[in-house]
């Protein structure tokens, strides 16, 4: 009896490790190659070097792409976070028939294939002169980022204890003060998580970027894609490694935020 549970336990762990390896190996294969001393994209490494990273920082088109990506991601967050948060708060506050339908509608960009959104956005934006512009890209990214904020903030808001808001009111706080001093701090972890998701979604996004941006507005993922197609050198791998590091950093931040909010609630 005990033995069979052990076998299952270890069998499960082994299976888990295999799946994890399968998921992570491609990533780990790339990172060491970006430190390769030679210029061939294959193992074994021909000595270690940071020259490909140096190449990234000294190539104008990469720097330009990084700048574009940052501008777009930050602007997307600036639009999506307030909108998603307000939508979550509003949906939580009122009850009406069609509420779940509206919720489904609001998060539909998360479910609709990105390519559909991209094509739709392109045909909608082109006549408005928003194609081939960063503004257009930001607006399109906001469409896919709002649901991410909405869903995460909604989760926080639904955990919020109504009694606390009543307590604040009974203590003399106006609805606005209650919102600022009680509601916002308590749902802040949700807002921050949503913001991180929104930032990451925009920063990694390539499909809409391909559709909307012209040569003048290339973002990092887009530049990366053309880099792999045109001249495949280890610079691309250095850029990829930087992207991986940023994603990992955001993930770490997310875990930290969620850990801190968990401490409040126990």
């Amino acid at each position: 009896m005990l033995d069979s549970t052990r076998i299952w336990l270890w069998g499960g762990r082994l299976a888990g490790a295999l799946v994890l390896g399968f998921l992570l190996l491609p990533i780990f294969a790339i990172v060491p190659l970006s430190f390769n001393g030679g210029s061939i994209l294959a193992y074994p490494l021909q000595g270690l070097s940071l020259k490909w990273y140096a190449a990234v920082t000294s190539t104008p088109r990469w720097l330009h792409a990084v700048g574009n990506s940052l501008i777009v991601a930050v602007s997307t967050v600036a639009i999506a976070t307030p909108l998603g948060t307000l939508a979550a708060l509003g949906l939580d506050r009122i009850q009406f028939p069609g509420k779940s339908l509206l919720m489904a509608l609001l998060i539909s960009p998360m479910i609709v294939p990105v390519i559909i959104t991209a094509v739709g956005v392109y045909f909608f934006f082109a006549p408005l002169g928003l194609a081939n512009s960063l503004t257009g890209l930001v607006l399109a990214h906001a469409v896919i980022a709002v649901p991410l904020v909405l869903v995460t903030v909604n989760a926080s808001v639904s955990q919020l204890d109504r009694g606390l808001l009543r307590a604040a009111e009974s203590l003399g706080a106006s609805p606005m003060t209650t919102f600022r001093k009680i509601t916002v701090p308590l749902i802040l972890p949700g807002i921050v998580s949503g913001t991180i998701f929104a930032f990451a979604a925009s920063f990694d996004e390539v499909v809409i970027a391909l559709m909307i941006t012209g040569p003048g507005q290339k973002t990092l993922p887009r530049e990366l894609l053309s880099g792999t197609r045109e001249n495949l050198d280890p610079t691309v791998l250095a850029v990829a490694s930087i992207l991986i590091a940023i994603s990992a950093g955001l993930l770490l931040l997310l875990t930290l935020v969620q850990h801190r909010s968990a401490k409040h609630h126990t």
């Binding site: 009694g163 606390l164 009543r166 307590a167 009111e169 009974s170 203590l171 609805p175 009680i182 409040h264």
Partner: peptide
Amino acid sequence: LPAHKRDIGVVFQNYALFPH
């Protein structure tokens, strides 16, 4: 009169202390 203007102290059953 809204609750915040009544000047009435309330102790709730589950205490309702602000956790943050």
